[in-house]
């Protein structure tokens, strides 16, 4: 068992790895994460001169290059930032850093390729165990926690029905997340609940949503759009059937996939859905009394302003 109070202290000051998506299409996630950190007095220091983690694309060219790219990010955090906890809100980044950590701990070939590429690139090699990668959910769960949110938000989200959508890369494949599935208090890979816990603490009503870890087809958003639209439509319709007002997301690829294919499903298949899509950090931000513009909600494709006014979520 990890000491909970130890984590609560340790995670208050972490290296922050936004990644490419949070500087582009997923900007609302970045803005809202930083706004929450400021509100809760948590310190985020950007990983100095970071690079892309390899996303989902580089591994299809060569998985070892993806391992190298992620290892370089960890090396920057350890050797330049001098920090040993890296917080990555993007599921893709989080997944890749975890995967690199696993491969570098277990696969000699990966160690060799990464050491070789690091030396040619002129930076220090990253070795497994030097840093810990956490998700924004782990970060908030350990620092402010459910009790903290309960006190601060006074149940502000009461009446808001949320479908919590975790996606693929936060839970699969399970072997790269050794800290999950460890019983009470830990995250589950088959039925994740950290997002549910945090939003419930802020007063939201989490609906029974069966597609928490279904795939949105994000890898082929553009290259096989019809498949993506069908997968997204499943998720949107299931959320509506569950009675949700909004789908809470924790991944910029899922988030833009849901938003873009919600429009595409209407245009191409004539299937209109009205459920809104917001990053869970945007919803928590509202609960903490931060204004929607400061959380980047106006930059989402799915226009949630009416819902926010209706549910009295303005500060």
């Amino acid at each position: 068992m990890v000491d909970v109070t130890d984590k609560a202290k340790k995670y208050r000051d972490v290296a922050y790895y936004p990644g490419c998506a949070l500087e582009g299409t997923g900007n609302g996630y970045d803005v809202s994460t930083r706004a929450i950190a400021k509100e809760l007095d948590l310190k985020l220091t950007d990983v100095k001169d970071w690079n892309c983690c390899g996303a989902m694309e580089v591994k299809n060219i060569d998985p070892k290059i993806q391992t190298y790219l992620s290892a370089r990010v960890l090396s920057q955090a350890v050797n330049v930032n001098k920090q040993d906890v890296v917080m990555a809100p993007c599921n893709g980044c989080y997944h890749n850093l975890k995967k690199a950590e696993y491969d570098l701990a277990h696969d000699p070939k990966s160690q060799e390729v990464v050491a070789n590429l690091s030396s040619k690139s002129g930076h220090k090699n990253y070795e497994a165990g030097q840093a810990e990668t956490i998700h924004a959910l782990d970060w908030l769960k350990a620092t402010v926690g459910e009790e903290g949110l309960r006190k601060r938000t006074k149940g502000k989200l009461a009446g808001l029905k949320v479908a919590n959508y975790y996606g693929c890369m936060y839970v699969r494949p399970r072997h790269i997340f050794p800290e999950k599935d460890k019983g009470p208090g830990s995250e589950s890979t088959s039925k994740p609940h950290f997002m549910d816990d945090l939003l419930a603490a802020a007063g939201a009503e989490n609906v029974e949503f069966p597609l928490k870890t279904a795939c949105c087809g994000g890898a082929h958003t553009l290259s096989d759009s019809d498949t993506s639209t069908k997968l997204v439509l499943n998720i949107l319709q299931a959320a509506e059937a569950s009675g949700a007002d909004v789908i809470a997301t924790e991944c910029p690829t899922c988030h833009s996939g849901l938003e873009m294919h919600q429009v595409r499903a209407e245009k191409r298949f004539g299937k209109k859905t009205n459920v809104k899509v917001m990053y869970f950090t945007q919803i928590l931000g509202l609960a903490l009394g931060i204004g929607p513009r400061k959380l980047g909600i106006h930059t989402n494709i799915s226009d949630g302003m009416e819902l926010i006014t209706e549910k009295r979520l303005l500060p």
């Binding site: 490419c20 998506a21 500087e23 582009g24 299409t25 690079n51 892309c52 390899g54 996303a55 694309e57 580089v58 299809n60 060219i61 290059i65 790219l69 890898a219 082929h220 553009l222 290259s223 096989d224």
Partner: peptide, 23 residues
């Protein structure tokens, strides 16, 4: 495949610059 074309364009940008630009 369209997927390979996408992967290659994406990876090309990362290899060239270390980061991608969405648009």
């Amino acid at each position: 495949s369209p997927s390979t074309i996408f992967d290659e364009e994406f990876s090309r940008q990362i290899i060239a610059r270390g980061k991608i630009e969405d648009t």
